[in-house]
């Protein structure tokens, strides 16, 4: 308090200023040439200089640490934002990737050879346990007509029953009201396959016909809907059905339960 009051006097203030500049000078000439007076001044001011130097050092280090911390915090904030954006992009890309894989698999279907087709997306599968339909959505430019064949990458799915705008209803092969002409790929025996809700029943094949379990059935091309040679399913059970006819159960190749994208073939003329 007394020191503070003495600063209000010109003498006190002048001395304070002179001391201040002396310290500053001592500090500045420390590393330069030292005279006897300079050394004496330095010796007298050494503790003060040391404290000042240390405090400056601590302040500098603290300030540098603060800057480092601030810079890193800013960087981490930016990285966090970038990370969030990238995560979002990845989440957006995931379904696209899956979609791409599915579409690629459709492109590589061997049995289509060079046939033209449209691609549609399955929106919803509906029906009772014995009536099975799927609603499709397709692009505006696609020419989709009723009675067109619908396939997935494994085989025949069904036929289009109804078209409305860019939507179409597909009657699945396994629907009890569906029927399709089939041929045994091994023996060439033909028949008609009807849906039973889950599988297909091949009808009109006599007991003498050469059909065994494991035979692959393809479309016969006689029903004016499906062209010849589209895979339908595999015979899982062959038995005597009475009336001189075989009872053949065919498991469809098409993944009826998990349809995502399907191919629509142009209507057979």
């Amino acid at each position: 308090m007394r020191t503070f009051l003495s600063l209000k006097k010109p003498e006190g203030l002048a001395i304070a200023f002179i001391i201040f500049y002396s310290i500053a000078l001592g500090f500045q000439v420390r590393e330069g040439n030292r005279t006897l007076f300079g050394k004496l001044t330095l010796a007298a001011l050494f503790p003060l200089l040391k404290v000042s130097e240390m405090s400056i050092k601590v302040f500098k280090e603290g300030f540098e640490a603060y800057l480092w911390q601030r810079d890193n915090a800013l960087k981490s904030e930016v990285l966090l934002k970038e990370n969030l954006v990238l995560k979002g992009e990845i989440n957006l890309l995931k379904p696209l990737k899956e979609e791409n894989i599915k579409l690629k698999s459709l492109l590589n279907v061997p049995f289509l050879e060079e046939k033209k087709f449209n691609v549609a997306r399955s929106l919803i599968s509906y029906g009772t346990p014995f009536t099975r339909s799927v609603l499709l959505s397709f692009d505006e430019g696609c020419l989709v007509e009723e009675k067109s064949a619908v396939l997935d990458q494994f085989g025949v799915v069904g036929r289009i029953e109804e078209v409305s705008g860019t939507k179409a209803r597909v009657l699945l092969l396994v629907d009890p009201s569906s029927s399709i002409g089939v041929t045994d790929l091994r023996s060439g025996v033909s028949g008609v396959a009807l849906g039973n809700g889950k599988n297909l029943f091949a009808k009109y094949i006599t007991n003498e016909a050469d059909v065994i379990e494991g035979d692959i059935f393809v479309t016969s091309g006689q029903d004016d809907v499906f062209p010849y040679g589209m895979p339908v399913g595999r015979a899982v059970s062959v038995s005597d059905g009475g009336d001189y006819m075989k009872k053949i159960i065919i498991a469809p190749f098409a993944a009826m339960e998990s349809l995502s994208y399907v191919l629509i073939l142009p209507k057979v003329e």
């Binding site: 002048a14 200023f17 002179i18 500049y21 002396s22 500053a24 000078l25 500045q28 000439v29």
Partner: peptide, 25 residues
């Protein structure tokens, strides 16, 4: 003003500072 003179003359700060203060006193 003394400190500023030292700064403008690019020398150790304090020479003119102290002289100015003494002269002013």
């Amino acid at each position: 003003l003394g400190g500023l003179t030292d700064l403008l003359l690019f020398q150790h700060i304090g020479y003119y500072g102290i002289s100015f203060v003494i002269s002013s006193y």
